[in-house]
Amino acid sequence: MKQKFNNVTSSCVPLPIENIDTDQIIPARFLKATSREGFGENLFRDWRFDDKGNPIASFPLNNPRYSGQILVAGKNFGCGSSREHAAWAIADYGFRVVVSTFFADIHKNNELNNFVLPVVISEPFLASLFETIEANPKAQVSVDLPSQTITNLATGVSEHFDINPYKKHCLLNGLDDIDYLLSNRDKILEYENK
């Protein structure tokens, strides 16, 4: 799972829907696995497939026009259940970046802990990005972590995005929080003895 993140330049898959909850990203009946692998095949299961398992043609993930490593979604992405399976499904499917105007707190942490980068952009940037993708599904977007910049290469418009400096360091270097916490054992013992 640990994977260094630097720059992703890719076409995008658009999901212009708001409040996409983690039950949609990965329905509860698929949470029974005890490993982290294989969740991608059920990503957006009930939006992607009908009750007989046939792909629903109108859903963007089934539309051959759209592909890429960047998922672009409406505001409040990942609300609801804390299930990290949602982040595993997104990563397993092949997305490395999710772009929205804001993310639910738990899901945002889950993405970061799986080296998927949640990029928070302004409403005008998102609206323009959806228009760009609609006009040209192969339009490229560049997400650069070192400079914290997202660029719509079709329009040339860039925007700065925020990320906690510590998390940025973790992503750039492929480190996770447990590495950090274990290195801090003395401080934990000190706290407990206070």
């Binding site: 804390s82 299930r83 990290e84 399976h85 982040a87 738990i106 899901h107 942490n109 889950n110 802990n113 799986n114 510590y166 996770d176 929080d177 447990i178 950090y180 916490l181 274990l182 801090n184 054992r185 934990i188």
Partner: peptide, 16 residues
């Protein structure tokens, strides 16, 4: 919390 964070708590009784 997510499962990675569950692992953090099990490993260190702390969370970031």
């Amino acid at each position: 919390i997510g499962t990675s964070e569950v692992e953090m708590v099990l490993a260190s009784q702390c969370i970031l």
